[in-house]
């Protein structure tokens, strides 16, 4: 398992190294580069920060300083399913916090955390701009409007069924071989 993660990380860094030359070496490239890394890998690893600093010829601490300033960048790998609960004004008034708590309770993690099995990560976000559908949650890339605690249950149940199905298929495949 550890080897698998290590191999993944190496592949990721190799990929970043191959992408960097496409970006200019001026300071203005810093945020677009960090965005590229975040989007391709869902997080910015410490090793990647160092590579960016080398590419732009600026101190590592500056890259770190910029990356930690913006909400978009994560420094730990997220879960396989990423859940964002909107806490914009309209969502707040319509009980967004209750929805967030429901996810926290179901997943047994706080927002900003990833479950130990790396299946789920949970995040609170400020306004995704779908206020008329409040409260809103974004599960992976899908926007869910008018979320109620019962809908949270439904979503989690859906994931569990999907996962069980996957495992069953995996077992069947293995036993078939």
């Amino acid at each position: 398992m550890d080897n698998e993660i290590k191999a993944q990380e190496e592949a990721m860094l190799k990929d970043i190294a191959s992408q960097l030359p496409a970006f200019g070496k001026e300071r203005g490239s810093l945020i677009p580069i960090l965005q590229m890394i975040q989007e391709n890998n869902a997080y910015v690893a410490p090793e990647a920060i160092k590579m960016v600093a080398e590419h732009l010829g600026i101190p590592t601490c500056e890259v770190y300083g910029v990356a930690t300033f913006y909400n978009q960048f994560r420094f730990h790998p997220p879960g396989r399913h990423h859940i964002k609960v909107c806490l914009g004004t309209a969502c707040h008034i319509r009980g967004g916090e209750i929805i967030l708590e429901n996810f926290e309770r179901k997943l047994e993690i706080a927002h900003g955390e990833t479950t130990p099995d790396r299946e789920f990560s949970l995040e609170r976000v400020a306004c995704v701009g779908c206020c008329a559908l409040a409260p809103v949650a974004i599960v992976d890339e899908t926007v869910h409007g008018h979320v109620a605690p019962s809908k949270v249950e439904g979503l989690m149940l859906g994931f569990r069924i999907e996962k069980e199905k996957e495992e069953r298929e995996k077992q069947e495949n293995e036993s078939g071989q």
Partner: peptide, 26 residues
């Protein structure tokens, strides 16, 4: 096209410029 990186303060014009230039949006 420049994409912001999630910092409300970057709506403030000097902070917005800072972020385009690759700095902390202060």
């Amino acid at each position: 096209l420049f994409r912001g990186s999630g910092a409300f303060v970057c709506g403030e014009e000097t902070a917005l410029i800072q972020s385009i230039e690759g700095n902390r949006g202060m």
